[in-house]
């Protein structure tokens, strides 16, 4: 009985929880890295490899509906089965090819429009007084936080045959018949430019804000006209902002699904929409996976350029 109350040797029989705490305190840095690292590895990177795997399989009547890549025969021989049919199919089928081209056309054009209009707006905010600046910035950021879906919906109301714009034009006597705008490519352009404009303005603003105003003064002192100063001094210095803004518009716009679906109706095909419909309606998974992989390849270079600039920007800070 008295044995039970005998003092324990120190350290040898510490409670498990305490030892774990000790271990945690010694290795807390690795724990902090490991938790988000493995989350992303598991839920972000691994899914891409599964998509890549499916894109190399064949359609099969099974659940899930594709053939297995690695199979073991009864005699224990491993067979690996890879087909590239899905990729050749995408390039031979004019529907897919044209849709990729159309997506790129829409995203590139919208990016240019965003730049042409976003640049002066960003520049105007930078040149505003200390009271107006935070308010203007807030007004640009606010739509960025409001629901994307509802911003697209707002344009449905403006562009419809009986929508605000047509009603206004008819009331003013400019047109007699409503102009068809909703469910056309024009509507898709408007939607893309509208929803992605803040992504162009904000990086441009961040870049211009850091510029040294004395360079402009020096140029003016030396007799340079404002237009000349803009093209020779300001514009070259804002190239990092231009690149970041363009990529932030171009990359998501290329894979856009909601805008072509709601504003383009069935008339405008973009690859994000084809991918979504392919997957939910036809359930031809291997082809849909291949479509996604090709889209990813189209965007890998822009994404890497973006990461490179991001890395440079964070080093500069």
């Amino acid at each position: 009985m008295s044995d039970a109350t005998a003092p324990e040797p120190p350290g040898a029989n510490r409670p498990f929880a305490k030892r774990m705490m000790r271990k945690l305190q010694d290795n807390w840095r690795s724990v902090i890295i490991a938790i988000p690292f493995f989350w992303l590895l598991f839920f972000f990177l691994a899914p891409f490899f599964i998509v890549a795997k499916i894109s190399l399989a064949e359609l099969a009547i099974a659940s899930p509906p594709f053939t297995k890549m690695v199979e073991w025969t009864d005699s224990g021989i491993m067979t690996i089965r890879i087909v590239f049919d899905n990729f050749t199919y995408i390039f031979e089928d004019s529907l897919y090819f044209d849709t990729y081209v159309n997506s790129l056309k829409i995203s590139v054009t919208s990016t240019i429009i965003c730049l042409l209009f976003g640049y002066p707006v960003a520049y105007a905010i930078v040149r505003s007084g200390p009271v107006a600046k935070p308010i203007l910035l807030f007004l640009i950021i606010l739509p960025f936080w409001t629901s994307f879906l509802l911003r697209v919906y707002a344009w449905m109301g403006l562009l419809a045959d009986q929508g605000t714009i047509n009603n206004l034009l008819i009331a003013l006597g400019i047109i007699d018949e409503p102009i068809r705008m909703l469910y056309t490519e024009f509507a898709v352009f408007v939607g893309v430019v509208y929803t992605y404009m803040p992504f162009m303005i904000l990086p441009l603003y961040a870049n211009m804000e850091k510029l040294d105003g004395s360079l402009n003064e020096a140029a003016a002192d030396l007799g340079s006209r404002p237009t000349n100063t803009f093209f020779k001094v300001t514009l070259p210095l804002t190239i990092p902002g231009i690149v970041a803004g363009c990529l932030l518009v171009f990359i998501p716009a290329t894979g856009e699904y909601v805008i072509p679906d709601l504003l383009g109706g069935g008339n405008v095909n973009m690859i994000g929409r084809v991918l979504f419909n392919e997957f939910s309606r036809n359930s031809d998974w291997p082809v849909a996976a291949a479509v996604a992989i090709v889209l990813l390849f189209l965007l890998v270079l822009p994404i890497m350029v973006f990461q490179y600039y991001q890395g440079k920007a964070s080093e500069a800070d």
Binding site: F44, P47, V51, I251, E256, Q307, Q310
Partner: peptide, 27 residues
């Protein structure tokens, strides 16, 4: 790799993220 995985979801088209997560959950 870690830095790449942090920045990539910012610019990844939603259809690709959605599709890959769906096939991941099914697998």
């Amino acid at each position: 790799l870690f830095g790449g995985m942090i920045v990539a979801p910012l610019v990844m088209p939603e259809v690709i993220t959605g599709l890959s997560l769906l096939v991941f959950f099914i697998s």
